[in-house]
Amino acid sequence: MRRHTRRVYNLAYRFTSNRQEAEDLSQEVFLRLYKTLASYRAIHGEFTTWLTSVTRNLLIDHYRRTRRDRLTDSIDQEGSPAEHKAAPGRRPDEVASASELSAQVQQALGKISPELREAVILRDLQGLDYREIQQVLSVPEGTVKSRINRGRIELARLLTQMGVQPE
């Protein structure tokens, strides 16, 4: 139970970048899971994949639901200084800690499109293989690979802009 909760919460947090929303969504995921558990069959794949699918669907629903709010917020914040300005010349070995890198990755994840974001999260942060991601996202394998590739590239560019560069 704790393992599944950690997985769901991390997926939700990486996608929403908001701890409170991630917590609420995690509860919602398990409630939905509880109600639909009877419909789970082995043909849906492994339980973890099914759990990830349910989480992902809820995240997408949540994303669509809150799109208008986010647009309003982004207009309000226009013109204000960015929280993390680029710090030219800053190298990864200068990164104070892993948690700082985690926060920077999180910030960059929030800036890429949800399709690319979810693909990168599922592959690189949740450790799913291509076949599992294909099942979760219900898209062809080629699309999965393409999204992961583009997602990583966008993420890398954003991190470079933030001053995070490889050694």
Binding site: S102, V105, D124, L125, R152, I153, A156, R157, T160, P166
Partner: peptide
Amino acid sequence: QVRWLSGRLPHLE
């Protein structure tokens, strides 16, 4: 950058 990032992401806390 992508190579480095791909190596670091799975090990993020």
